[in-house]
């Protein structure tokens, strides 16, 4: 069985006919040539496929494309602006937060989504006082980034990169014009506005 699905991928509206068994990940990679999200396990266990779906980080392998008609998808390829990498991507480069690069687009999307979650006050399993504003110390970053496996073992550099990006975003608080911020206000189709 097939269905036509409309997706907004990295700012471009795409209509694609998919087998109803096709995951969002396979639709992106195999149908739309959007190969930044990677397939590492297809079971939601590794996080390599992480994208921002309507502003929130998800494992694209765990949702069917047909269930996401009208959604806004941002991959690592769509995070930057005007040809420059997103500040999280810049921080990964500066801190060598990767080696083989295969988990990296997912790590980067996960970090962007995670920074938004923390900014919105969401606690994690590492949060001592869930009623307080979370402070992104190393334990918080490690916990919140643990859905993304890295077999090359770049974790300490990933934590350093996210720490740096978090400090940048704290410094940018109130700067709503930040070219690379991802907001989570609902867009008309249930999606997020991504600038």
């Amino acid at each position: 069985m097939e269905a036509d699905v409309t997706l907004r991928v990295d700012g471009t509206t795409r209509v694609v006919r998919v087998d109803t068994r096709t995951t969002l990940l396979d639709a992106l990679r195999e149908k739309l040539d959007a190969t930044a999200p990677k397939k590492g396990c297809d079971h939601g266990q590794c996080g390599a496929c992480t994208v921002l779906l309507n502003g929130r980080r998800v494992n694209a392998c765990l949702t069917f494309a047909v269930a996401q008609d009208g959604a806004e998808v941002v991959t690592a390829a769509g995070l930057g602006a005007d040809g420059a990498p997103h500040r999280v991507q810049r921080a990964f480069l500066d801190n060598d937060g990767f080696q083989c690069g295969y988990c990296t687009p997912g790590q980067v999307c996960s970090a962007v989504g995670m920074l938004e979650e923390a900014a919105a006050g969401w606690p994690s399993a590492a949060t001592g006082d869930v009623a307080a504003e979370p402070v992104l110390d190393d334990a918080e970053i490690r916990e919140r980034m643990s859905g993304n496996l890295c077999r090359c073992g770049a974790y300490v550099n990933i934590v350093a990169a996210v720490r740096e990006a978090a400090a940048d975003s704290a410094g940018n608080t109130g700067n709503t014009d930040s070219a690379d911020s991802v907001t989570s206000e609902a867009a008309p189709a249930g999606g997020a506005e991504v600038r």
Partner: peptide, 14 residues
């Protein structure tokens, strides 16, 4: 910095 770094962090390395 890795010469292949930008391609990797942006998901453009094939």
């Amino acid at each position: 910095e890795r010469v292949d770094g930008l391609a990797k962090v942006t998901g453009q390395a094939p």
